[in-house]
């Protein structure tokens, strides 16, 4: 079974096709990248997969289940985790609380048990705190547990997002331009983290601009342009594809 199946997906905005009849499969495990020039439709595709947009036509399947009509939060419950291009964190919570937020779907959020503060709520909170701390350590943020995100460096915020996404225990993790805005050493750390996650068996989908990063860690690359599939395959194949070279003319592929 595919981890992610995109079946003749289309999205129109007032007559303009942002995504047009796009189909592809992503098999479980390993690192997959979605690349394309600016304006190729990557962001729209991401929004369609995560459920921020509903498609004009076609559908998205996650581990065999159709996501048609499913809102964003329901897809998270179906095993989809994500990070954002610019870190989206709650500034009024501590770093640890931000990661604990990721435990939401695994905790009891019903009103009555909460209002009565039943033991299960207390034990759930303890467990969430424990897990969140472990995850922060896992992504290398052990020093930032009780810091306010406002005082954390940019690279740390990006890793905080990864920790939060991991806290959901996703089966597929979407990373939206994780390397954007990072320095060279931070990029190396990031590569290490992605490889570590992939090594643990998580399916990773990377939407990224940084070609060096993409070519070095992906097992499979999908290139889109003008909302359509341009090429697909292993890094070496994609790199040699004349269409891809043409689309990226001028940038180092």
């Amino acid at each position: 079974m595919s981890a992610l199946e995109v079946i003749s997906l289309s999205k129109e905005f007032g007559g303009v096709h942002a995504i047009e009849d796009l189909s592809f499969n992503i098999s479980p495990g390993s690192v997959h990248s979605i690349i394309g020039p600016n304006g190729a439709g990557k962001t729209t595709l991401l929004n369609l997969i995560t459920g921020i947009y509903q498609p004009t036509q076609g559908e998205v399947r996650l581990f065999g289940d159709s996501m048609a009509g499913m809102p964003v939060h329901a897809r998270v419950m179906a095993g989809l985790g994500r990070t954002f291009q610019t870190p989206q964190v709650c500034m009024h919570m501590t770093a640890l609380e931000n990661v604990m937020l990721g435990r939401h779907i695994h905790l009891d959020g019903r009103f009555l048990p909460t209002a009565l503060r039943l033991p299960r709520i207390l034990s759930g909170e303890r467990e969430a705190r424990h897990r969140a701390a472990e995850l922060m350590e896992y992504v290398g943020l052990a020093d930032y547990l009780n810091d306010e995100p406002g005082s954390m460096p940019y690279g740390a915020l990006k890793r905080l997002e990864v920790a939060r996404a991991l806290a959901c225990e996703p089966k597929l993790l979407l990373l939206d331009e994780p390397a954007a805005g990072l320095g060279a050493s931070e990029k190396a750390d990031l590569t290490g983290l992605i490889e570590k996650l992939s090594g643990a068996g998580l399916t990773i989908v990377l939407v990224e601009h940084d070609m060096k990063l993409v070519m070095s860690i992906s097992q499979h690359i999908l290139v889109i342009n003008y909302g359509q599939k341009l090429a697909e395959g292993q890094p070496t194949e994609v790199r040699r594809n004349p269409d891809v070279v043409a689309a990226y003319l001028g940038s180092a592929v």
Partner: peptide, 9 residues
Amino acid sequence: AVAGSVGID
């Protein structure tokens, strides 16, 4: 975007 991305309805 945060709330939705962690599965909050």
